[in-house]
Design a protein around this nucleic acid. Structure first.
Lengths: 384, 384
DNA sequence: TTGATTTACTTTCCAATGGAAAGGTAACGT
DNA sequence: ACGTTACCTTTCCATTGGAAAGTAAATCAA
């Protein structure tokens, strides 16, 4: 019996346990609105199929009444592979039901050709499987592949990937055929948002945005437990909000884009102009800024300002409870944190300033973890 | 038996009929995914309580098989009053279940004091009731009051209204006490969005935005059948997106806001500066622009550009299928239509340009109709 | 030790819901 | 007249989760 066959109440109980950890049946009833009897039945049904188990510390605090026995998800009940595809490499993780990485691996890509990428993905998944010493075929319940660009997860196709120069590639089907394991694909930022929604800083938050700052600048929006995909596959493109000045031209051909001044590439480029050193790298720029170089610091200030304006746009438009800031750029967050905050506070309208800005470092496997979360979601929250 | 007591399938059937007009049972089954038997039962249940009735042209096109008998909602089954409160006046309509206005009336406000506004609302509703010659007390099923600003519809309080200078006013409760009729309140733009979602250009559209251009510039977002309210009551504040230049200062104290260059007031102000005529009104500006005055036309061009950028922000962030442009400003839409479109097309990213821009004129009762739609929604789609 | 109290959990029973499947109905075409 | 087609209704039933009463395991008080 798979989780999809469980009655709605059981699915609800399972999801609550996934998000909030071990709970007593009584507490589950309170949180889900189910009656005690219904919880008992749902738990029995889930337990019969080994999705959950009794156990976990029975809360040290002593109270009156019969002590509670906790039930908890058995994360190892189903395992998933998550693979993030970039133009240069694959990042893969093997993760459990809660998208916790059990093993990870990176592979350089030597070709961006669809066939060889699919093959590389299949090899990477096989390698993860071997590394983790998985017993049989059925131990891996799904694969989630994530990729930046325009991804239609329902169709399972990559509509357009700028970094790989792919168009209308039925990637989910190809990987599924190459591996024999059910595969879903999703935009990388949306996948990360799914991971945060279920297992990260988005748990219990009705509306939040996840912003990634790095080579690109993007956002995922979660509203009422669903990640927004946009009618045409485009959503959360904060990198191209026209909020900065007209001076710099973005890769998209426009002026005013946030990415034109705040992407890793744009910052390095501006630092080169500011210093006159044509060989300056991003790392050099960070070093110079930390050393106090005023012109380079101004570059970071400007980037921070643009990001802050973008966050204000998000806050004014959808009014999130929280914005999670993440991405490679977070490593040098101290250099523009103040400018981000200031620009945000200045331009967030009314109660939108109450939005909580949260910075999260993003280890490299995190991206791949998003894929695992999307694959896992298929199992525990099949699309109604 | 009220609609809330109907089983879920019946509610679904009713909502489908509300949005798509008279349908055969077979067609209802196809659209809702219910089996024929379930539709028959749902329809019988709704018919027993007079929510729907058989009838309507049985589709002229001839086909094989037994001819279909259509069922349709009985819009007059429940009537609602919608009242829009501005700083100067009340606009009220009496509307049926489909938010179609049956009678309307405007009243000037002589005081912005909470008590007198509540009294005026109650009198207006009473007048509408008399005008329409409603039989008894129970003929009016609800009142929806809309107002611009920060409204918490769940609590029923106006958190902050700049035009009335109200804070934390429990308006729903006050109107309910004054009229004896169940009352809901909602932000005016969101209410309009609800009306469009159920009965207007938003029917069947999974994600859309409704943008109003006039004294203020705002937007309502509908995603997956729900209007976004924001965690702190703020959402759709496109009037304060920081996309225009730094020259003009907005009423909110910031620079760069769309409202600072594109609100009715801002356009008139800029036209006065451009012409040097301190008495110039908005109407004069429109006349001059139509007559070809280049400096005034430039003012409209700039306003259109700012609105277009704001629309691009909406498209890039949430990827709507459609953006409905409405508001008083639409009257002179021809003056900036091209600039809106151009700025939008330039800055919408990727497939976001596929978003459909639709202009809808907004008769004055339309605002109040939003209130009626919100009140009606309480009846046919009680919050789950 | 005993029993009251409190909270957690289980069991039994049942009403409601909507699907499956079969049957009835009203048109058309030949 | 008779088959065909599509619409609609009826009957029966499995599933679901609530209501309510009962059981379990702890603390507290006498």
């Amino acid at each position: 019996m798979t989780l999809a066959d469980q009655p709605p109440a059981a699915a609800l109980v399972f999801q609550t346990l996934l998000q909030h950890g071990p709970l007593s049946r009584a507490e589950l009833g309170r949180r889900t609105g189910l009656t005690p009897g219904a919880v008992t039945k749902a738990a029995a049904s889930l337990m019969a199929d080994a999705w959950i188990a009794e156990g976990g510390r029975p809360s040290t605090e002593r109270t009156n009444g019969r002590p509670a026995t906790l039930v908890a998800v058995r994360p190892e009940r189903a395992l998933f592979a998550g693979v993030k595809v970039t133009g240069e490499e694959l990042i893969g993780v093997l993760a459990d039901l809660t998208a916790k990485p059990l093993a990870s691996h990176r592979v350089a890509l030597d070709s961006r050709d669809v066939g060889s990428v699919v093959l590389a993905v299949a090899r990477l998944v096989e390698r993860l499987r071997v590394t983790a010493d998985l017993p049989g075929e059925d131990a891996l319940h799904g694969i989630g592949v994530t990729i930046s660009g325009d991804v239609d997860s329902r169709l399972g196709t990559v509509q357009y990937s700028p970094f790989l120069d792919w168009r209308r590639v039925p990637l989910a089907q190809l990987v599924e055929e190459a591996t024999g394991t059910p595969t879903v694909i999703e935009n990388d930022v949306r996948a990360l948002t799914v991971a945060e929604q279920w297992f990260g800083a988005g748990v219990g938050v009705s509306i939040f945005a996840l912003v990634t700052v790095g080579a690109g600048i993007g956002a995922g929006l979660s509203i009422g437990g669903r990640v927004v995909s946009g009618a045409h596959g485009v959503a959360g493109e904060i990198g191209h909000l026209p909020v900065s000045g007209v001076e710099r031209i973005c890769t998209c051909g426009n002026t005013g884009c946030v990415e034109a001044v705040a992407s890793t590439h744009a910052i390095a480029e501006q630092a080169r102009q500011a210093t006159g050193d044509p060989k300056l790298t991003m790392d050099d720029a960070v070093r110079l800024a930390h050393a106090g170089d005023p012109t380079v610091r101004a570059v970071f200030a400007r980037a921070g300002h643009a990001v802050g304006l973008a966050l204000a746009c998000v806050a004014n438009l959808i009014g999130p409870e929280r914005i999670i800031i993440s991405g490679e750029g977070v490593a040098s967050y101290d250099l523009f944190a103040d400018h981000i905050r200031q620009a945000f506070l200045d331009h967030a309208f009314g109660a939108a300033v109450d939005c909580d800005l949260l910075v999260r470092p993003l280890p490299f496997e995190e991206w791949a973890r998003g894929g695992a979360a999307v694959a896992a979601q298929r199992v525990f929250a099949p699309t109604k």
